[in-house]
Nucleic acid binder design. Structure first.
Length: 544
RNA sequence: UGGGCUAUGGCCAAGUGGUUAAGGCAUCGGACUUUGACUCCGUGAUCCCAAGUUCAAAUCUUGGUAGCCCAGCCA
C-alpha cells in the first residue's frame, strides 16, 4: 500500500520544491524504557515511509536522557521490532552520544545570560511557576551573575550537589501563557549510572533541551512527534535559535492512533506484565509489536493497517476490525488452507472398511495454485466439529449435518447420519454415518445436492493440537475504571483438537487458514507431540 | 477573554474557491461458491452552528459551540 496524501507529506513536497530543504531527513526517537506497541508503529512507518518517498533518510535515535527509567535491554528489543517491520535506519544513534555538545550549549546559554542555576526545590518551583490562569513569578536565583552560574553549573557537573539540589533553567518568561516557557528546567542532577555513559555524567539534559539539539546535529529536517508536543514547539524553536544551531530542524505534530478495545499506555502494559495478568510482553493478546508478531500478524498487515488509517492532527480511534481486515487481506492469498477440528466429535463411517486409509490429493488453495497440493486422509473414523451437527435440522438455512441428513465432507465423500450415540447424561459422543462411494469429490457427481459442506480430519492420522483463541484483554476502554475490573476473563481460551497430518512438521510463526475456522499461526511453544496454534483472527462470517 | 490544537457519513480520511465531496473499515442488500470464506455488484454527507465575502465556499472572513492537550527536576 502506498502512503496516502497527508499534511506532512504536503509540507515536505513544498519544502523540497521551494528549496527550503535539499533532502528529507527524519528520525524515530524512542525512549529505551518500554517495548514498542502498534501506536509506535505509526510513528516508525510514517517517518520511514515519508523519507523513502523523497529518497531521504531516517535515523533511529534512542532518546536516553533519563537514566532513572532507561535500560539497554529495551534497546535491543526496539531494534529488533524495527527490523521486523522491514526498516533499516540510516544510522543508529543515542541522545547520550551528544551529552558533551549538549553541556557546551548549556554553557553557551549561560554566557548569553539565557540560563541560570536555580536552587528552588521541586515544591518551591511549582509554587513559583503559577497556574494555567495566573502568571508565575521569577525565581530569586534568576539574576545570578554569569560567572556565578558558570561556576555553579560546573560544580553541578562535577558532582558537588545532591539530586534535586540545583537545576539549570532557561531564562525565558515566567508570565508566558505557555507553561513550557516559564523558565523550564533544562538540566537536572541525577546520580545514577547511565546505560551508555556509565558514571561519566551526573547531570542530564531534559527532553525539551536535548531533542532540538540532537535533531539539529543530525541534520533532521522534519522532526515528527505526537500532537501533545504542539505547545513545546515554541521552546524547541527557542533552543535551536538561542544555541545558534547551524542547522534548523522543524517540528511537526500528528495525532495519536488508538484502536478500539486496545489500551496502549506504557504504564498499563507494564502493569499487565508485572501483575502476571499476561504472560509477558510477547503475549499474543498484547498490542506490543512483539505480541502481535507472536499472535501471527505480518509486517505487511501492520504497515497496511497504519497506512490505511491515514494521518492527521486528530487523535483517532480506529476500529480493531480494520486491523483484522488487514491481516485477512494479507493472508488470504498467500497462506495454505488446511483442515483442523477444534471441538472434535467422533464420526464412524459404518460402511467403510476397517483399517483402511484412503489418500486424496487436495490443493492447498484453489485461489493460489502455486501453493501446490498435499494428501489428506480419509477412513472409517473421522472427526468433525461439534458445532457442525444438530440432531434436528433447525431450519432451511442450516447447511450442516443432522440426523438423516446428507452433507459433503469437503474433498472427500457425502456422508449421511443414521444414528446418534449418547452417553448416560445424554451428551452426543459419536455419530454413526454411511458414505456413498459414487459421490467422491472430483468425480463429477451431480445427481444429488448435499446439505452443505463441512470439514473433517481422519482420526488415526491427525495430530493432537492445542488452539489458543483470544479476545480483547479489556472489556471496555473506560480509563477511569480500575484496570482489574475491566479485564476480560475470557481473553484466552484453549481448545483441544486435531489438525490434518500434513502439519506435523510446522514451524514457529508458520501461518495457515484453518478452513471455516480462521487464520492461525504456529506458536513458539509448539512441539511435535503437541502442536500449538494461536488464532490470529476469525474468518469473516455472514452467518446469523 | 490563560494558552494551544481540532471539527468532512457509524470509525478513519482525501480535498488548498468551480468535483456528481475520493478511498478504506463497518453496515445492509444481491450474485457466485465443495470454506456461511474469498471474489464481484449495489448501498449512505445540505462538510459542527450562524452570519458574511464571492457569479461560485467543505475550502476565505467574523462570531459562536463542542472535544482534546498544558501547571514533572518524565518523554
Amino acid at each position: 500500500m502506498e502512503l496516502e496524501s497527508n499534511f506532512i507529506k504536503t509540507i515536505m513536497e513544498e519544502d523540497l520544491k521551494n528549496g527550503k530543504v535539499s533532502e528529507i531527513v527524519t528520525r524515530f526517537p524512542p525512549e529505551p524504557n518500554a517495548y514498542l506497541h502498534i501506536g509506535h508503529a505509526r510513528a516508525i512507518i510514517t517517518n520511514f515511509e515519508l523519507a523513502k518517498i523523497f529518497n531521504g533518510k531516517t535515523n533511529l535515535r534512542f532518546d536516553d536522557t533519563n537514566p532513572v527509567k532507561e535500560d539497554s535491554s529495551f534497546v535491543e528489543a526496539i531494534k529488533e521490532d524495527i527490523k521486523w517491520l522491514g526498516y533499516e535506519p540510516a544510522q543508529v544513534l543515542f541522545g547520550s552520544d551528544y551529552f558533551g555538545q549538549t553541556y557546551d550549549l548549556a554553557v553557551t546559554l549561560i554566557n548569553k545570560g539565557l540560563a541560570y542555576v536555580c536552587d528552588l526545590n521541586q515544591e518551591e518551583m511549582r509554587e513559583y511557576r503559577g497556574t494555567l490562569t495566573e502568571a508565575g513569578k521569577n525565581s530569586p536565583y534568576r539574576n545570578r551573575s554569569i560567572s556565578e552560574n558558570l561556576q555553579l553549573f560546573k560544580e553541578m557537573r562535577d558532582g558537588k550537589f545532591e539530586d534535586g539540589e540545583k537545576t539549570l533553567r532557561a531564562k525565558i518568561d515566567m508570565a508566558s501563557p505557555n507553561m513550557n516557557m516559564r523558565d523550564p528546567v533544562i538540566y537536572r542532577i541525577i546520580h545514577i549510572e547511565h546505560h551508555n555513559t556509565g558514571n561519566k555524567w551526573c547531570i542530564y539534559p531534559m527532553y525539551d533541551f536535548a531533542h532540538p539539539i540532537q535533531d539539529s546535529i543530525e541534520g533532521v529536517t522534519h522532526s515528527l512527534c505526537s500532537i501533545e508536543y504542539d505547545d513545546h514547539r515554541i521552546l524547541y524553536d527557542w533552543v535551536v535559535e538561542k544555541c545558534d544551531m547551524p542547522h534548523i530542524p522543524h517540528q511537526y505534530e500528528f495525532g495519536r492512533l488508538n484502536i478500539t478495545n486496545t489500551i496502549m499506555s506504557k504504564r498499563y502494559l507494564k502493569q499487565l506484565v508485572e501483575s502476571n495478568l499476561v504472560k509477558w510482553y510477547d503475549d499474543p493478546r498484547m498490542p506490543t509489536l512483539t505480541g502481535l508478531r507472536r499472535r501471527g500478524y505480518t509486517r505487511d498487515s501492520i504497515k497496511n493497517f497504519v497506512l490505511g488509517t491515514g494521518l492527521s492532527r486528530i487523535n483517532s480511534t480506529v476500529s480493531s476490525e480494520m486491523l483484522e481486515t488487514s491481516i485477512r487481506n494479507d493472508l488470504n492469498y498467500q497462506v495454505k488452507r488446511v483442515n483442523a477440528v477444534l471441538n472434535p466429535l467422533k464420526v464412524t463411517i459404518t460402511n467403510y472398511p476397517e483399517n483402511e486409509i484412503e489418500w486424496i490429493d487436495v490443493e492447498y488453495s484453489k485461489d493460489n495454485e502455486a501453493l501446490g497440493t498435499r494428501k489428506i486422509a480419509f477412513g472409517r473414523n473421522v472427526y468433525i466439529e461439534k458445532e457442525d451437527f444438530l440432531e434436528l435440522k433447525p431450519n432451511k438455512k442450516w447447511k450442516r449435518l443432522s440426523l438423516g441428513i446428507e452433507v459433503r465432507l469437503m474433498h472427500a465423500y457425502f456422508i449421511k447420519c443414521n444414528e446418534i450415540v449418547k452417553d448416560s447424561e445424554g451428551n452426543i459422543v459419536e455419530l454413526l454415518c454411511t458414505y456413498d462411494p459414487i459421490t467422491k469429490s472430483g468425480s463429477g457427481f451431480i445427481d444429488r445436492k448435499p446439505n452443505g459442506n463441512i470439514h473433517f480430519v481422519e482420526a488415526t492420522t491427525s495430530r493432537k493440537s492445542v488452539f489458543n483463541h483470544f479476545e480483547p484483554l479489556m472489556l471496555d476502554s473506560d480509563s477511569k475504571r480500575d484496570m482489574v475490573e475491566r479485564l476480560n476473563p475470557n481473553s484466552w481460551k484453549t481448545l483441544n483438537g486435531f489438525v490434518e497430518i500434513d502439519l506435523k512438521d510446522t514451524y514457529s510463526l508458520e501461518r495457515f487458514q484453518f478452513i471455516r475456522n480462521g487464520y492461525y499461526a504456529t506458536d513458539y511453544d509448539s512441539k511435535k507431540e503437541l502442536l500449538v496454534f494461536n488464532r490470529i483472527c476469525e474468518l469473516r462470517s455472514s452467518f446469523k
